[in-house]
Design a protein around this nucleic acid. Structure first.
Length: 106
DNA sequence: GGACTGACCAACC
DNA sequence: AGGTTGGCCAGTC
């Protein structure tokens, strides 16, 4: 029943794919939603697969900085285009668009 | 089959 | 204030 057999790996995609437009999540935040607040590494590694269906540009570091190697600037432009507010430092405004996750009480 | 790595985070000194 | 380590999961050598 229900889909829980999915590995930690697969659930990362579920969360990232569920992030609404104009909001972002940090690696550790996603890991925490999965039940392992220290599995941020695994989350980052899951994103390393970089599936086209996965809008991983909405996933940023705890500081709000965008990851992704040389494409960091590109991802940042994509987020701005989606309506995500940025700071003058080039970081995501986590204070304004940090997603609370799939809240059941919405 | 064992050990290392990987786009991280937070605690510790 | 800054550097190091431990922890999580899965894939690769």
């Amino acid at each position: 029943m229900c889909k829980q057999k999915n590995s930690f790996f697969d659930r990362v995609y579920e969360i990232v794919a569920a992030i609404p437009c104009g909001q972002v999540l940090s690696y550790g935040r996603i890991a925490a939603l999965l039940g392992s607040p220290r599995a941020a590494r695994t989350v980052g590694w899951a994103l390393s697969a970089c599936p086209e269906d996965l809008p991983w540009q909405r996933v940023v570091r705890a500081d709000g900085t965008v990851a992704g190697g040389a494409y960091t600037e590109l991802r940042r432009a994509m987020l701005i285009d989606e309506g995500v507010p940025f700071l003058l430092d080039g970081r995501v405004d986590m204070d304004a668009c940090e997603w609370d996750g799939p809240r059941k009480n919405v």
